[in-house]
Computed example of a mutant assay.
Amino acid sequence: MPTPLAPVGAARRLALGILCFVLFVALWGAATWSGLVKPLFLASPDTTFTEGVELFMRFGFAWDIAVTMFRVFGGFLLAALLAVPLGILMGTFKGIEAFFEPFVSFCRYLPASAFIPLLILWAGVGETQKLLVIFIGSVFQLVIMVAVITGSIRTELVEAARTLGARTRGVVVRVMIPNAAPQIFESLRLVLGWAWTYVIVAELIGSSAGIGHMIIDAQRFLDTGQMIFGIFTIGTIGLITDQLFKRLNRALFPWSLGR
């Protein structure tokens, strides 16, 4: 039996990750090539790949990807610019937390998709509406996560800083933020994944471009190959950004590697 929490080497980790994808494609191919699942309901791996090539060659799918990425990262950046400072303040100062926490917790349970009719009324069906859907779906979750992370810093560190003469500003800037930064960055990585779910919802209504728009068009023609390829494209972009976030976290905060 493997030892709990035992580290796995980089080469072995990569091999195991690739093996998981290989097994997934093998099971998918076995279900479709054998005729167990009809092509109407699930396209085979080779058909999906062929449809994907056609999307890029004939239908300008690269532009759809670029549009969707702009919406995701734009809405996510707006949410992060508000949520991270507010979350740090809430986690640091209990009075600010007492003021904002009930309202933020209330808003956190409001589904972003329910705002779409109102946002269309307020902002139309352009890019602003789609950015706001992602913003609403991300900002309140991120505020709570950052506040919890910041507020969980060991009180001994704060007391030691005060003993050494640090004032409130110094405690926040030189103790609390550096200590919480790696976990805040990890929270950003997690919330970015949620932002991808909101952008597809936003693109289902009143959109003329984007991955979600392409998936809806493919659904009208019962083209499961294109639909699956669009879904896998989102997963691929998400995997790449996820790995970039991990590497950037290690590069920016080397003091957290020993945790």
Results as ranks from 00 to 15, higher is better:
V72H: 07
K246R: 10
P111C: 10
G126N: 10
L77W: 14
A218Y: 07
S207K: 02
G95K: 08
L164R: 06
I237Q: 04
G151A: 14
D223Q: 05
F99P: 12
L131M: 07
F56T: 00
A180G: 03
G17R: 02
T3S: 15
L19H: 15
C20L: 15
F76A: 03
M1P: 08
L82H: 03
R108E: 12
D242V: 09
W33P: 15
L36D: 11
F232R: 11
F73D: 02
L252F: 04
A202R: 09
L16S: 11
I149V: 03
T68V: 03
P254N: 01
L132W: 03
V25H: 07
M176V: 15
L204R: 05
F221A: 13
V37P: 03
G212F: 00
T155W: 13
P7S: 05
T128R: 14
D46W: 14
Q141V: 03
S113K: 11
A251W: 03
A30P: 05
L82Y: 00
D64T: 04
F221Q: 13
P39F: 09
R162S: 05
L121C: 10
V143S: 02
F56E: 06
A180F: 02
G212L: 07
G95C: 08
V146L: 07
L118Q: 08
S256C: 11
A26K: 11
M1T: 14
I116T: 01
V72E: 02
V143D: 02
S44H: 05
G74R: 14
S105P: 14
